[in-house]
Design a protein around this nucleic acid. Structure first.
Length: 574
DNA sequence: GCCGTTTTCGGCCCGACTGTTTTCAGTCG
């Protein structure tokens, strides 16, 4: 079993324990063990075999036993018992905003509610409002909440969140009462999906700023409005929280509300060890606040290098900041070329010339064209004859270009047996190959892993494309042992792309530390099907930074000549 | 259930907001 699967089971146990157990710390322990497991570098089986589970922070004797059992059998005795004890629909109730484990337990015990449908009926009959601790307003909010989680999954892809967030920020910046304003929360940390948009502003007139905020474009509901916090909901269902603090408090508030919770807990621990106190209002020595110019001064005062928001996940970045060994993170201007682009030769919307123009307009010095290969009938994949015709067209265009170069590549399907999608003689035509899975997603994990590794062993393969095939909020990736895939990529010198499409962001940033450890390089690839699609690179850069990649790890940060060398080196054996 | 350079037992982040409760519990981040 993969560590992500075991982590999901531990998460489920945490939720089940929340509604079942009187001890709130027990579910928290399972939750934190699941996070530790997800962040684990390396292969779970190997960690178990080496007897090193217990050395992972948050995993003690009892949870270690659960993990061993789950890894071997796919479940555990204790999990089976918990599932039997808690009706299936109870966990859905926890997704309703404002309902936590305590209220869910009351609903289950007093009214026998065990599903969203049953709760809806109970609210409509008015019996929920009569319960102790509930009331008319709570009942109405529950009904609203049921409707809400029915209409959206509760999380948003970046392309659904970031543009709206930037509109809110711009709206706030237009108020002369706002001194400083910045995005916070998981959106600032570059997570691949977000639940809401957190914003932190400073002002000496917080009431007026809150009034201004609720009039922002797109706001349809004001959920809460207090002295420092205002919550609204936008037309697309996205929620946004604004905190307004004084300008002196702003650095601490921005740090606090950027999170993550795990990162902040660790940071507060450092403050506590110094007999200081860190909270959203400042860094205090006794009751005396230390003057803070900006966020960086907080880290500096605690004896740490500044930690970029993308790295603040509580996965060891604080230890790195203390030793001064944080990675240098990629910035978008460091990207010299744009690679993994479709044209109207296959399923792209624009011509080769139009994509070249769009890439040049964005300041790139080369374009890696990769239409689909012949098996991708649905996408008008290129037959060998059309491959040769496209090459002739690219040569013609290149001869007329100065200071810009088109590289002829292909996004080759990986066939179910792991073979690439053309004979070697055809593959020889391409300057580089991105090998991707587009079919037969249902293979067992072992077969899928072998399939990817076989594709990477072909010396034509330059990049592995979207390695898990996930579509965020729509479909999980196929089952594949990414640790073995990354090891093979490192040994073979195949780069693993970060597919920058906001639907994918695949490979996942959580694999970054392991990839770097294994010497695996990446490419930030927009998988663009139109000129505007090239701008998705920005999402990929966020993901790469979160993964800890710097320009030296990123193939398309090379200039055109170096990129050509990188593509050629596996075939020439150099 | 986990953890410990004061602890193997007794903590486990803590402050804001809401609603219902007349002094506070539950939820959230």
């Amino acid at each position: 079993m993969l560590k992500s699967q075991v982590a999901a089971l531990l998460d489920e146990m945490a939720s089940l324990l929340e509604v079942q157990s009187d001890n709130p710390f027990q579910p928290r322990a399972f939750r934190s063990a699941a996070r530790s497991l997800e962040g684990l570098a390396g292969d779970l089986e190997e960690v178990i075999a080496a007897g090193e589970l217990r050395s992972i922070s948050g995993i003690g004797e009892s949870i270690a036993r659960e993990i061993v059992e789950m890894a071997a059998t796919g479940t555990s005795q204790r999990l089976v018992e918990l599932r039997a004890a808690v009706p299936r629909g109870i966990l859905d109730l926890l997704r309703i905003p404002g309902l936590g484990s305590k209220k869910v337990r009351v609903l289950a015990l007093e009214l026998g509610v065990d599903s969203l449908d049953a709760l809806k009926l109970a609210c409509e009959s008015g019996s929920v409002a009569k319960l102790k601790g509930f009331g008319e307003k709570t009942q109405a909010k529950i009904l609203e909440g049921i409707a809400y989680i029915g209409s959206v999954s509760g999380r948003f892809r970046l392309d659904d969140a970031l543009p709206h967030a930037m509109l809110l920020i711009e709206h706030l910046q237009r108020s002369h009462r706002v001194q400083r304003v910045e995005l916070a929360g998981s959106l600032r940390r570059g997570k691949e999906t977000v639940k809401d948009v957190d914003i932190v502003a400073s002002s000496s007139e917080p009431d007026a700023v809150a009034d201004h905020f609720v009039r922002a474009p797109g706001v349809i509901t004001v959920v809460a409005k207090g002295e420092t916090k205002t919550s609204v909901r936008l037309a697309n269902g996205l929620a946004s929280d604004l905190r307004v603090v004084s300008d002196a408090e702003w650095p601490a508030a921005l740090q606090y509300f950027t999170g993550s919770k795990e990162h902040n807990t660790e940071l507060r621990g450092i403050a506590r060890d110094l007999d200081w106190k860190l909270n959203e209002y400042g860094l205090f020595r006794g009751d005396e606040p230390l003057p803070l110019k900006d966020e960086a001064s907080i880290y500096e005062a605690l004896g740490l290098r500044y930690i970029e928001p993308e790295l603040r996940e509580g996965l060891g970045e604080i230890a790195l900041a203390r030793e001064g060994s944080l990675p240098d993170l990629l910035t978008q201007p460091e990207l010299r070329g744009v690679v993994h682009v479709h044209t109207d030769w296959s399923d792209g919307a624009a011509s080769l010339e139009a994509m070249v123009e769009a890439a040049r307009a964005r300041g790139y010095s080369y374009l890696g064209v990769t239409d689909h290969s012949q098996s991708a009938f649905y996408a008008r994949g290129l037959t060998p004859d059309r491959v040769r015709a496209q090459r002739a067209e690219i040569d013609r265009l290149n001869s007329g270009l100065s200071d810009f170069r088109i590289f002829h590549g292909i996004e080759s399907d990986i066939r179910p047996d792991g073979a690439l999608d053309y004979e070697p003689a055809v593959l020889d035509i391409f300057e580089f190959v991105i090998a991707s899975v587009h079919s037969s997603f249902q293979l067992p994990v072992e077969a899928m892993t072998e399939r990817l590794i076989r594709a990477m062993k072909d010396p034509h393969t330059t990049f592995l494309g979207h390695p898990t095939g996930r579509l965020l909020l729509q479909r999980d990736g196929y089952l594949v042992d990414m640790d073995r895939v990354l090891r093979a990529a490192g040994e073979l010198g195949v780069a693993v792309e970060i597919n920058a499409s906001p639907y994918r962001l695949d490979m996942d940033w959580r694999l970054g530390a392991r990839a770097r450890e294994l010497g695996v390089r990446t490419g930030i690839h927009p998988d663009a099907h139109s000129p505007e699609g090239l701008d998705d690179v920005a999402y990929g850069v966020r993901c790469a930074r979160k993964a800890g990649f710097g320009a030296t790890h990123v193939v398309n940060a090379l200039d055109a000549a170096e990129f050509a060398k990188f593509c050629a080196r596996r075939r020439t054996g150099s």
